[in-house]
Design a protein around this nucleic acid. Structure first.
Lengths: 263, 263
DNA sequence: GAGTGGTCTAGACCACCAC
DNA sequence: TGGTGGTCTAGACCACTCT
């Protein structure tokens, strides 16, 4: 019953600001000031109705606003809680450097273990298909070319954080471990290098937006959490693109870090 | 009255899916299939109520869902419209390379003109103050050190797209053009290099989240659009950090691109 | 003035959770 | 079983936009 620390303010009927926004403001300030801490429960809708003397819809509008800002999550039958900031995975720009690959582990697994988190890769599916037009473009392939398509989902400590779909030109991958669900130690980049395709550089393109309903389901995203879309293209030494990886990441789980030379 | 192309489906009362989600599904599919194009108006709430035979709140819940996904924007007194994808600014990882600076233009202005867009920088404010703890940390300064703080807002073709706050150690900036609202040709990086602080490398850290109400106001963001938070640290040749720039960007206006070596 | 979305009320029934 | 949030109804009045 620590509501006392929260339900202190009242509506200003003279204000231009709508009632539900005023209620949201009060709760937002309470969170910012630490009167409501991470994981703590907000007053229930009933309590808020009683305290402010308003209809339920008004309270719900206020709570929805906070949810859309990513500040709270509602749990059916339990209550509304201050969203806990999940541990953030920091992705450094050298994470695909050859030296890391040499240890025989794929990038995601190696990093997770370093962070003392339990990684999981599931929903692995490997097919052969024509790539989307933008992917074919990046690979320098004609639209009707065939690629090996590897899709999978990554989880950390039981929470899904990222889905990824890789496209590799079929002539590079067909009949090799790259076309197997389990490509072996070091992942597909190790396999590509073994077959003479020495990786030279990567490009990454990053966008952020709200998830589609499908993405929200696959990543178990609560409302108010955007996603990164990261598209990585891998080039071998002779300049040919050998892989495009299209990744959707829960934005609250990642911090992307890059090093840039100044010249 | 192209509603005919949209109001074709009906509610399935046998479905487990709630009515408002079914309505949202119909409209989402109509947008995906191109039956509702960018900038086009959705049927009004009244029309949707009549067509589906539901209460207004049910229709509004459906519309809110689409708005939260970033698919539509509501305009008071006018209608609900399919959100137009704004032109995207692609930021390449060499945008702060010295050669660009030599031309005497700050990065934002130079790029905008190349893209045939009209740039604007406003809300410029320069003060001297103690930096936030995380910034002091990046600059390698004690918590009570003083910095010159430069904040400004960037717009493109009349639309605000980015706010930025730069922190420069006071001993580097005080009394120089860096502490002036207009730092002169090439921006503050040019001034730093002129005074012997040759820039060597940058790091950029990227997060994405929903905007705070303040950020949404400053960038005129409609609901459903996340922001990038990009924190850039500039290092001079001897390894000292000489600037931290904390940037909030409208995520629908940017595509961030990076080049990574593989070794 | 007619039509649009924004806010708010006062109810109802349901699904989920914890005890 | 009682409390929680999720869905839905049927109204009301308001603010905004366009003509």
């Amino acid at each position: 019953m620590s509501d006392a620390a929260v339900l202190t303010e009242h509506i200003d009927p003279a204000s231009d600001r709508s009632v539900y926004k005023q209620i949201a403001d009060h709760l937002r300030v309470a969170m910012a000031r630490g009167r409501l801490r991470e994981g703590e429960q907000l007053p229930s809708e009933t309590r808020l109705m009683e305290h402010y003397g308003v209809a339920r819809m008004t309270v719900r509008n206020a709570l929805r606003l906070l949810q859309d800002e990513g500040l709270t999550t509602a749990e059916h039958g339990r209550g509304v809680y201050v969203r806990a900031r999940p541990p953030v995975r920091r992705l450094a720009s050298d994470r695909f450097a050859q030296r890391h690959r040499k240890e025989g582990k794929a990038a995601f697994i190696a990093e997770s273990e370093q962070a003392a988190a339990t990684p999981l890769v599931d929903m692995i599916r490997v097919t052969e298909a024509r790539p989307p037009a933008d992917v074919a473009d990046r690979l320098g392939l004609p639209d009707d070319a065939s690629t090996v398509v590897r899709s999978r989902r990554y989880s950390l400590d039981g929470r899904p954080v990222e889905t990824a779909v890789s496209y590799i030109p079929a002539d590079l991958a067909r009949g090799t471990p790259i076309a197997d669900p389990n490509p072996g130690p070091g992942g597909i980049y190790a396999r590509l290098e073994e077959t003479g395709h020495t990786l030279d550089r990567f490009t990454e393109e990053i966008a952020a937006r709200m998830p589609t309903p499908d993405e929200a389901r696959a990543l178990a995203l609560p409302p108010g959490v955007p996603v990164f879309r990261l598209v990585r293209t891998a080039y071998e030494s002779d300049g040919r693109a050998v892989e495009v990886c299209d990744t959707i990441m829960a934005a609250d789980a990642y911090l992307l870090a890059y090093d840039l030379p100044a010249h």
